Computed example of a mutant assay.
Amino acid sequence: MTAFSKLTRTGMRGLKPGQTISERGIEYTRLTNGDGRWSVNVMVNRQRHHQVVGLESEGYTRTQAEALVASLKADKRAAAHGVAGSKQRAVLSLARAADDYLQYLAKHDGRDLETKEMRFREHLKPHLGQIQVSRLSDDDWLAYVAKRKGEGAAPSTINRERSALLHMLNTMRRRKMLAAVPLLARQAEPEGKLVYLTPAESQRLLKAAANDQSDLAHPFIMITLYTGLRHEAALSLRASDVDAERRVLWIRHDKAGRREQPMPQILSDYLVDYAAGMDGEDYLFPSKRAKSGRAYQMNTVFARCVERAGITKHCTPHTMRHTAATNAAHAGLDAATIQMMGGWKTRAMAERYTHAASMHDAMDALQGRLTSSRFTRKLHRPSKKSA
């Protein structure tokens, strides 16, 4: 492993906002909000490459910066020796590479396969499909971004498409089908407001769901409220996935992969009654109209329940995930536990809930401190004589 003398944890922690340290083409900058930003600034093939890798809060480390520098140098070597990058003799277009990649994931139990197929089918292949995959460049990606923005795609949507494309390219590199992978600049996303339901709003929503015309409304909100499961993962549950004795749900399909999802006793008891009489492979959210036999989405039903509950916030099924995590933070669970509970990839994604809960508790403590002080509002009123 390469030894660094400047880019050490001690050196990075000692930086003040706005300061930067660099070593071997890798830069680390302490931002004004306390976050850290990784970037590279190297000269390769007589051309200066100054690119942002990512933020520390998003899970980026020096490892990703080193990989980018290695990738740029690999591109230089490949160009110098006339190597296109792919070890296959036939020219492989991005469309053909995507088909091969998706087949490979299907054979090796890849995660989030349906979503990846959709992103390649509807967006990536129509715009980039004809490009030779070994010659895909950052300029090609920027042209793609411009087209998608012209179609009204949000930065967050484009970043998810970028993640799917990068996963394909990195998988090809691991399979020795590509020599290097381009950076593909990530789009800046505006920091969204963390929307979650209060306990009172949650109870109103459960009541509205119990009175809804859809039999799936109440169990869907119960499961997502008490576990924070993602929309797709909840709808993929089968009766045999409920382990009431251990109080866990077996998650077969999720963005975070296969895992066990803990649940409280109230949900465990509820699901035992709900799944009574079902066969083990029966879906908890069946649909006779769907080819797969299960419901594909609950957006319409959920929106109707939100409206009938008198909730004016902009809520989607994903709001239940925020609600579960926020309630867990207010209950005193630490970020590591919340991360495991919800299946988040990085600790930073779970820490925003504990941070919000800590600030809420801090404000309550501040209020209690001030209101219990001798200096009350009554003592500060002007006297009649001075008036």
Rank of each mutant, 00 (worst) to 15 (best):
P264K: 08
E201R: 09
E189M: 15
A188D: 13
M263A: 05
K147R: 14
T227H: 02
D215L: 03
A146Q: 04
L165W: 14
K149M: 14
L237T: 01
D139C: 07
P262A: 12
I223L: 00
D243H: 07
P155F: 08
G192N: 04
D215K: 10
Q261E: 05
V195A: 01
F220R: 09
A256L: 01
D215G: 09
Q203C: 03
I251S: 11
G192M: 12
L197E: 00
L216T: 04
R160A: 13
S214W: 06
Q213V: 06
L237H: 04
K255F: 10
A217E: 00
V195G: 09
H167D: 13
R238S: 10
L169G: 06
L142I: 08
L205F: 02
Y144H: 13
A143C: 04
L216V: 03
I223K: 08
N211H: 13
T227L: 05
E151R: 04
G150S: 02
S156M: 07
R173S: 13
A209Y: 12
D241Y: 01
H253T: 00
L142M: 13
G152C: 08
E189L: 00
D140G: 12
Q261K: 06
A143K: 11
Q213E: 04
S236E: 10
L206W: 12
A185T: 14
L183Y: 08
